[in-house]
Structure formats: structure tokens, C-alpha cells
Write a protein that binds this DNA or RNA. Structure first.
Length: 262
DNA sequence: ATGGCTCGATTGTCGAGA
């Protein structure tokens, strides 16, 4: 079973690329971030024709997330219960792994974490509060659903390995101690970074700035993550960042990340 | 380089992203 996350930076612009990618990479589950459209404009039919059922949680202009799956997702929840939020950032659902008597359910949380803009700003404070809200809810969610993945655009790097210029970006947004403390507090709930379970190419990133030939020069950050709960950790067979679509014309600035469960 | 691209909302220009 394969599950993927991808910040596509406008589904209106990127829909053909997402459909192409799914045709070439027929994953079982795909969570999307930054749809930048409302639910009435979500291309449900086109994903259905591609073999995917979808749940969207969009808003105008900014944010917006979706959960696509080959088999129906159940118990779908939008945003973080217990945390008041104007923005559409989280979509959660339960999907089935396997069929028949051996089938087991998996809880998938797809999330678009706040950017934070700049340490000390109002948006940074919102990011911190959002992260605390997420953790508080996830703690309970893990009790109800021990087999859980948290995947999406975290907008946080773990450490220097995730940053193309660690010295230049010291204490910059995505790299501050405060953000990393919150990320490690999620890890402390019993989650594991799938990426680091396996040998990875050096300087593996999931986002590159559009400006200044960031992708060509591999000036990037690893900010898109797939965290798995303790109950799923032993089943993780691979975790790969797919840079292929970043080479498209008019690409998203993010690459998809794919995890395989055995 | 208080920037560089890209997107949406707009239709000249700016906020936001990361």
C-alpha cells in the first residue's frame, strides 16, 4: 500500500500534473495541500475518472486540503477538533489496508501547517498555537486510532540535514528552535519520520524556491513529511521524495513524498 | 540584493508563500 502527500500550490493550475502523476504513480491514498479553491470548484469527477474518491476542504484564494483514495475514506474530519480556525488546513479520514478478513484500518491525517512568515510575527504566533492545538488533538486521536499517519506540508525542518544553507538560515522561518521544539513534541507522541528510516540521497529536499533557479541548484528545504505511529513503524517499507514533477513546466514548488506500507 | 518567482484577485499591483 502506498500513500503520498503533495503541496500542489493551486489545484486549478496543477490538476493536469496531478492526474499525470497519479497515472504514473497509482498510489492508494494522496493528500493534497494548497488547493486554493472552494469545494464547489473541486474536480471530483476528474479524480473519479482517474479512479479516486475524494474529500475536499477548500477555501477561496489560500490553503485548502484534500484526501483522495482508491477505496472509500470514512469518519472524515475537517480541521482540528477543539481548535478554532478560519483556515482550511487539515483533513482526516480512515482508509482500509488490505481486503476481506485481513483488512485493517489506517487513520490518515493530511495537513497544511501554517507558514509562520517570520519569527515574532502574528503569523508565527498563530503557527505556534496551531501546532499546540494539533498535538493536543493528535494525542487523543492516537488513542482511538493507534495505526495513524500524519502527512503533509509541515513548514518545519528537523535539523541542518533538511536545509540547503544551514548557516544562512539559522533561526530563519522553518528552522527556529521554537518550531523544531513543536515538531519534536509531535515525535514524542510516538511518531516516527519515515524519511529517516531509510538511506536517502544526500541533500534530499521537498521544496525549492521558484526564484534564482532554486531547484536546478538544489537550494531547498525538506519540509514535507510523513510521520507514522509506533503501530505502523515496522510496516514502512520505503519513503521517497519524487523530484520528477518538479521538472515539469509550471511546477509546484513542492515535490510529492511517497511512503510504502507492507 | 528589504530582491529573486508564482499564484489569486484583479485588470495594475499587491499580499502571501517559504
Amino acid at each position: 500500500m502506498k500513500l503520498a502527500t503533495w503541496n500542489i500550490n493551486s489545484l486549478t493550475v496543477r490538476l493536469p500534473q496531478v492526474l499525470d502523476w497519479l497515472a504514473a504513480n497509482p498510489v492508494d491514498v494522496l493528500v493534497l495541500q494548497e488547493l486554493k479553491l472552494t469545494d464547489d470548484k473541486f474536480p471530483t469527477d476528474q479524480f473519479a475518472q482517474a479512479g479516486y474518491l475524494s474529500h475536499s476542504f477548500g477555501q477561496k484564494t489560500y490553503n485548502g486540503v484534500a484526501l483522495l483514495s482508491r477505496t472509500p475514506a470514512t469518519d472524515v474530519v475537517k480541521n482540528i477538533p477543539g481548535f478554532d480556525d478560519d483556515m482550511a488546513r487539515v483533513i482526516t479520514g480512515t482508509v482500509s489496508q488490505g481486503e476481506g478478513d485481513g483488512a485493517q484500518s489506517i487513520r490518515v491525517v493530511g495537513a497544511y501547517f501554517p507558514n509562520g512568515q517570520e519569527p515574532g510575527s502574528d503569523k508565527f504566533e498563530y503557527k505556534m498555537e496551531w501546532l499546540k492545538g494539533l498535538r493536543s488533538w493528535l494525542k487523543e486521536e492516537l488513542v482511538k486510532h493507534p495505526r495513524l499517519l500524519l502527512m503533509g506540508d509541515y513548514n518545519i525542518t528537523f535539523d541542518d540535514l533538511d536545509v540547503w544553507d544551514p548557516e544562512g538560515m539559522r533561526d530563519a522561518i522553518h528552522c527556529t528552535d521554537e518550531e523544531r521544539y513543536q515538531l519534536n513534541a509531535l515525535i514524542a507522541l510516538g511518531l516516527t519520520d519515515s524519511h529517516r528510516l531509510f538511506p536517502q540521497p544526500p541533500k534530499s529536499y521537498s521544496w525549492w524556491d521558484y526564484r534564482d533557479a532554486g531547484f536546478r541548484r538544489n537550494r531547498g528545504l525538506r519540509i514535507d513529511h510523513i510521520l507514522v505511529s509506533q503501530a505502523l513503524k515496522a510496516q514502512v517499507k520505503s519513503c521517497v521524495i519524487d523530484k520528477t514533477p518538479r521538472k515539469n513546466e509550471r511546477p509546484s514548488d513542492h515535490a510529492p513524498v511517497v511512503v510504502e506500507l507492507g
